[in-house]
Amino acid sequence: MLYEHYALLEKIGLDLLFASIFFFIGMAIKDVLNTGEVPPFGRRIVWLVLFLGCAGFIAKGVIQIFWEGAGIG
Rank of each mutant, 00 (worst) to 15 (best):
P39I: 10
F51Q: 07
L33T: 01
F51R: 07
A7W: 09
F22Y: 13
A28F: 03
L50F: 15
F57C: 09
L52P: 03
A7N: 10
Q64K: 13
I65Y: 13
K30F: 06
I58T: 00
F57S: 14
F22G: 06
A28W: 04
V38R: 10
P39R: 08
L17G: 10
G61K: 08
G61W: 05
A70C: 02
I65Q: 11
K11C: 02
F41I: 15
L8E: 15
D15I: 14
G69Y: 11
N34P: 03
L50A: 15
K11E: 08
G42F: 03
T35P: 01
V46L: 11
F41W: 12
F22L: 08
I12Y: 06
E4W: 04
G69K: 09
R44E: 10
I45M: 12
I45C: 07
G13W: 03
G13H: 01
K60H: 09
I58D: 00
E10Q: 10
V38D: 04
Y3L: 05
L14G: 04
I65H: 10
G53I: 05
A7T: 09
I12H: 08
F66I: 15
I63D: 01
V49K: 07
E10T: 08
N34A: 13
I58F: 11
L50G: 11
D15M: 14
F41P: 09
G61L: 05
G56T: 00
G13D: 06
S20R: 11
C54V: 10
G69Q: 09
M27F: 11
Y6Q: 09
I21G: 07
N34I: 06
D31A: 03
P39M: 06
F41M: 11
L14Q: 07
D15S: 15
I65P: 02
H5S: 10
F51K: 00
A55V: 05
E68D: 00
E68C: 00
E37P: 01
G56N: 10
L16S: 04
A55M: 12
L52R: 02
I12V: 12
F23P: 05
L14C: 03
I58C: 01
V62K: 00
G36H: 07
K11N: 02
M1V: 13
L8W: 14
G26R: 00
I72W: 14
A70D: 01
F41Y: 13
S20W: 05
V38N: 07
G73E: 12
F24Q: 11
V32S: 14
A28P: 01
Q64P: 04
A70G: 02
V38S: 09
F41V: 14
A55K: 03
K11T: 02
Y3R: 06
V46R: 03
G26S: 07
G13T: 02
F22C: 03
D15H: 13
I65G: 05
